[in-house]
């Protein structure tokens, strides 16, 4: 029972971090229709930006701010420099996907050149162990769940209650109608890339604080995020969070029966199951051709 409770807690912690990347990836995919694989390197850049700023002597909170701002800037730059010109020439979704993958690889290598491929750990978090009813975790784990929850609820509130948030939902629902009522879709795309990038960065910074980071950390993160978005349903931010939580729990609870090196297989197993039984995802709409 203790093992089950421990794995459950581990699953929630992992799932909450997955949710940050999945929600941000899903927001970009659902609004712009771009399968933004390079989101993985934007995520990693958030961690390395914070690491660089901490190296300059900035306190942890300020270094995290630099990492988040850097990720937002990089995400919007990728939109302006890579995706926008491709959309302008009506490039197919496949071409955009390959360009995104290329951007991921190039920038991932640039990080490796700048910081080496060794794992880097961000110091300075006052980590303390907590044992509750036989289940062990740390204050960093509590922070991970709290940060994810606050950002997730903040994003939902932003989308639901603010003028810009409603414009994002309008573009996600119908880009042409959005244009017809005078919404500047190019500006909304920029906002979504900035917002999504800024939302993914804290997850990478928290991982760097917990167990360190390598330049290729974004590849695994983006794969899990893509699976979570498809499991939850493309176009639904709560769906992406739900998908991420399910994958986090399945991977960790699965350890009771399957060796931990098969965690990636478990995530893909969940994906296969959902794609076969409910192709639109758990809470998603019917898939449109342009979305995949």
């Amino acid at each position: 029972m203790d093992l089950f409770a421990q794995l459950l807690v581990n699953g929630v912690v992992a799932g909450s971090l997955y949710a940050l990347v999945a929600c941000s990836f899903g927001l970009i995919l659902g609004t712009t229709g771009t399968f933004h694989f390079a989101h993985g390197v934007v995520y990693a850049a958030g961690a390395y930006g914070a690491y660089f700023a901490a190296g300059l002597g900035l306190p942890l909170w300020a270094a995290a701010g630099v990492g988040i701002a850097g990720a937002a800037l990089l995400g919007t730059l990728i939109e302006v420099v890579v995706y926008r010109p491709l959309r302008r020439i009506a490039a197919s979704p496949l071409v955009i996907l390959i360009a995104s993958l290329g951007t991921l690889i190039v920038l991932e290598n640039a990080i490796a050149i700048g910081f080496s491929t060794d794992a880097k750990v961000l110091e300075g978090f006052p980590r303390k162990g907590i044992v509750l009813g036989g289940v062990g975790f740390t204050t960093l784990h509590v922070t991970m769940v709290a940060v994810s929850l606050v950002l997730f609820l903040g994003l939902l509130a932003f989308l639901r209650w603010t003028r810009r948030g409603k414009a994002i939902r309008a573009v996600a629902n119908s880009p042409e109608m959005a244009e017809i009522v005078g919404i500047d879709t190019a500006r909304v795309f920029l906002l979504v890339f900035a917002l999504g990038s800024a939302m993914a960065a804290p997850a990478a910074i928290l991982i760097m604080l917990d167990r360190g980071a390598t330049p290729d950390m974004g590849m695994d993160a983006i794969l899990i995020a893509a699976i979570a978005v498809i499991v939850g349903g493309i176009g639904s931010v709560p769906g992406a969070a739900l998908g991420a939580l399910i994958i986090g729990l399945a991977q960790n609870l699965g350890v009771m029966k399957i060796p931990s090196e098969w965690q990636a297989a478990i995530a893909f197993g969940v994906l296969l199951l959902v794609v076969i039984l409910r192709p639109r995802g758990l809470v998603g709409k019917k898939l449109r051709r342009a979305e995949i």
Partner: peptide
Amino acid sequence: FVPQGHGIFTDLTVRENLELGGHS
């Protein structure tokens, strides 16, 4: 312009549709 086939945002509420109508 009101396009063919109901120019509305189907996922949003009536109130939100009208708010977005005046967005610009």
